[in-house]
């Protein structure tokens, strides 16, 4: 298997708690870039701080034209779609909402899939709509790995269920098992 270069995570309702659990259990040695798209209201500008306190890896908001960094969690800013250019820099878009969402998980996942292909892991966590399903499908089409939180374990089932229905998954697990799996996939037997 190709060593993963990046992990893209999508979630909405219940997502902040889920992210705290997941990011808090990642291995500090990870050198993968982590990209997070979490639907939120514009008022939730403190998301970065909240997650930063729990996360093992540093959390920063993705800035347009800046490089994607290794071993860093990049948050999609509110009000814009986040995309990755093939030269591994971030781009933003003010295009209309996709699945009622901006940032949209589909937009992030599709652009990341093109950039990293087999070296990308896509993760769909709890959420209340179908955003992310098409993106996860694109990730799988291009050879990446798909992880979906078990709908029965998720605070909101719609998003993981839609992802499973449309894209299927390589792994479907309860939340506490996802970070250990990511650590294993990324660090191998290290």
């Amino acid at each position: 298997m190709t060593t993963p270069a990046a992990i893209a995570i999508g979630c909405s309702a219940g997502g902040v708690d889920a992210l705290m659990t997941l990011l808090g259990a990642l291995d500090a040695r990870l050198r993968q870039s982590v990209l997070v798209c979490c639907h939120r209201s514009d008022a939730m500008d403190i998301l970065g701080d909240v997650l930063g306190r729990m996360s093992v890896l540093p959390v920063i908001e993705a800035v347009e034209r800046q490089p994607v960094q290794a071993g860093v969690v990049h948050l999609a800013p509110s009000g814009y779609h986040l995309l990755v250019e093939s030269d591994l820099h971030f781009a933003l878009s003010a295009d209309p909402r996709v699945n009622y969402s901006r940032p949209s998980i589909d937009v992030l996942f599709c652009s990341a899939a093109e950039v990293w292909r087999q070296a990308l892991i896509g993760v769909i966590l709890t959420g209340a709509n179908a955003d992310g399903a098409a993106g996860l499908q694109r990730i799988r089409e291009l050879g990446g790995v798909a992880i979906v939180q078990s709908p029965t374990d998720a605070e909101a089932t719609a998003m993981p269920q839609a992802a499973l229905d449309m894209a299927g998954a390589d792994y479907c697990l309860p939340l506490p098992d996802i970070a250990p799996l990511l650590n294993r996939l990324c660090l191998g037997s290290l």
Binding site: L83, V84, E85, S86, A91, S93, D95, V107, C110, S111
Partner: peptide, 9 residues
């Protein structure tokens, strides 16, 4: 134009 968005459109 920045390629990622243009391609998407």
């Amino acid at each position: 134009y920045a390629p990622a968005s243009l391609k998407r459109r």
